[in-house]
Design a protein around this nucleic acid. Sequence first.
RNA 1: GGGCGCAUAGCUCAGUUGGUUAGAGCGCUACAUUCACAUUGUAGAAGUCGUAGGUUCGAGUCCUAUUGCGCCCACCA
Length: 908
Amino acid sequence: MTQELSKQYNPKDTESKWYKIWEENNLFSAAPSPDKLPYCIVIPPPNVTGILHMGHALNNTIQDILIRYKKMRGFAALWMPGTDHAGIATQNVVEKALAKEGLKRQDLGREKFLEKVWEWKQLYGTTIINQLKKIGCACDWERARFTMDQDYSLAVTEAFVRLYEKKLIYQGHYIINWCPRCQTALSDEEASHIDLEGNLYYLKYPLKDNPQEFISVATTRPETMLGDTAVAVNPKDKRYKKYIGKYLILPIINRPIKIIADSIIDMQFGSGAVKVTPAHDLNDYALGKKHGLEFINVLAPDGRMNELAQKFCGLERFKAREAILEDLKLLGLLEKITPHTLSVKHCYRCNTIVEPYLSKQWFVKMKPLAKPAIAAVKKEKIKFYPARWTKVYLNWMENIQDWCISRQIWWGHRMPVYYCKNCREKNPKAGIIVSRIKPSKCPKCGSENLTQEEDVLDTWFSSWLWPFATFYWPKENADLKYFYPTATLVTAPEIIFFWVARMIMAGFEFKQQIPFKNVYIHGTVRDSQGKKMSKSLGNALDPLEVIAEYGTDALRFSLISITSQGQDVYLSKDRFEQGRNFANKIWNASRFILTNLKPEDVNVDLCVFFKREQLDIVNRWILSRFYTTLEKVGKELDNFKFNEAASSLYSFFWHEFCDWYLELIKPQIGQKQTQIVMYKVLEKYLRLIHPFMPFISEEIWQRLPGAKDSTPSTHPGLKPGVCSGLMVSKVEPSIMQQNWPHLQSELINKQDELQMELAFEVINVIRNTRAELEVNPASRIDIQISVASKLTQKSLGLLSGYIKNLAKINDLTLTEKYIAQNNQYAVVFKDLHIVMPLEGIVNIAQQLNKTNLKIDKLKSEIKNKEGMLVNKNFTLRAPEEIVEAEKNKLIDMREQVKKLEAIKNGLR
RNA sequence: GGGCGCAUAGCUCAGUUGGUUAGAGCGCUACAUUCACAUUGUAGAAGUCGUAGGUUCGAGUCCUAUUGCGCCCACCA
């Protein structure tokens, strides 16, 4: 403590220093402990391609608060970190890098390309991890996992094989979402709808028997007409009834196609006749199956037309659309074009319009998996915070579709599926071998001519195992036993379906248990316009820039302050000033305390010293306020009300501890009792604020000279009978290892608080009056206070020293009765008259006016109350204490009016 | 088409189970600067709680309808 403290808090000096020390001393590591209960959070693994954005900052700050808090509460708190290989996203990034060298992945070939990706991962994959360290995350980094690690991959294979053996994985020919740019299938969740202004094109198809007659069909995707194999109408549609069963000639292609009837067709829409393209539309696919139609695929995987598109072969799909429309126009077969808004699926990675595409893919049957996952949430074994997400989850789960898990990319877990060429030649449906390890020969025919499936698995097929695969499942080790099921999952609403729901299903399927007990869903970070913050929109605030400018603790505290449960977060840069100012306030208050501290006074056993009765009122008051705050913050954290906890901590420290307490005790700061109380409150407060502001709390805590605290206490995280021991700074070097302060509820006293509040109000009234009367702020004046109640008089007497000091009073006299006198100005406050000399008052008329306004306002309120109290409906039905309170208020107000009238007369 | 969220001070938002006098931060106004902190202090101005009904002795809070904004889900060609 010999070191000078600078006038301003400088985060740069402290942050990297402490993080390094915490890390070097292994303070982030957690292990099973016989005395402690487990508390585990698995991080939503950021993509290896990731760069820290505000969403990460918010998400990880919340987790860090929980981990640090629970650790102080005695839990063996483990924050399991790691990264996700993010199949498509990462492959895209590396492909882009290759493109700069004029290379495509195909130029390298699969193996070489994967080497490149791994290289890239080694170089850049830790960027996001280092950024998480920068915001202070207390992750157990030694446990960090990567979804493509060898051990983790074993878990992925295991899961696949088990599901396949249970016949929950199957291969099928279906219409899936195809991204022509990424050239892979996407799950429904990866293809999001975006509304586009498009057109509805009416095409005329001539009848085979009578080419002069036409049926007009409406479509938004004219290029798919090349693959039409029928036209469908509603059987009840009078316009078309006579044509059902007849044939049309598909223009350009000149293929005869049948007119079929199906009640699914909406007669109101378009022309009431629908072209059916079973290979390029989900509905048409169903129709095709039902009516035994031909499936004609006219597209190539890269989004160009294929040879079945005849003369349009090789044209890009939207170019082909133009060309086909042009041809139809020339043929006189384009009836009309009307504007039409349609919602089109886009690839969530590259935003390309997705093509419904008929292909062979692998699927997971989801209905059986969903069943226990639905039940667990219904029975509240897993709870969502805020609760409304429960409904969203259940709704999705109850309508769940099979999950397309195959991807036609290279970066990812290769499926453990092998094909026996020999068997397949005899029967194309046979010869599929699913195996944990690559088989050397076919178990059926013994052939060694085996090839592995080219496709890789959807990224989420590995991340849904995260809560247990990170513990080396399928091995059952001690850590997995101890920490699983984990406690809380903290995430954003965007990935409830992608990740949360699937983890719950995987938890039941592979561990027969829930993966976590609570799911806290925080809001989306948006800019001040309400737009989602993203790099592509260019509206992103870079957390690292904010840290450089305001400090990490400021970033964290501000973010948390504005995150009310479940609401989206609207950010602009100036919001971080509050956090920075608060850090500075803590710094300066601590500086004040430390420079005024006598170490020999505070180096005592703090918990033994105090008996409430031994303390003076101000010290009793601040302790009472501190413990009230402690209790409140604990409850708020336990209920995931982070912003409320932040606000409680903020207003206690700034407005109660600094504005009042430190000001009040300045004259008595050398007294032993005050030394100890102010020291004790600061020391404990640092522990409360530590989960929110880890760096500044450690920096100051380390400078505290005395014994920290030895309150023995039990904490919720300690097993029954276990008591946390003495906490002395020499033994425990970091605030991270301290206990959350023990709640000494015997030090909470409402009487003390009321008494102090009265003094504060009196001081406020005097200050306010002084300002109104334009009394020189530096001058001390005489004040006389008359109080009817003996009790109030006594307590004011006790506090008169403080009042005199903070209200700049020269002489304070307390009298029983108020007698109006000339040359005096009096203010009525409750049953008090606060009287000061009129000398120096500039504007009596103005004061008179103010007094009159007050009287008028009171009178109208009195009228209101009188009406209320005459109303039998109120007096008979409202609870007695409310009626009683109203009566008292009325009496008070009448009194006040009387007093104000008296003052008015005095002013004249 | 279905579902969810939001609307409270100039701005951004809190407001627990309905209790009559609605809070914070920022901004604004006035004053204060050797005494921890101008990233400060003291004081002040500022709101018919989106609109219309209803329940109730009493509604920012509960119900119904309605307007505006945002989000999610959904196979209208």
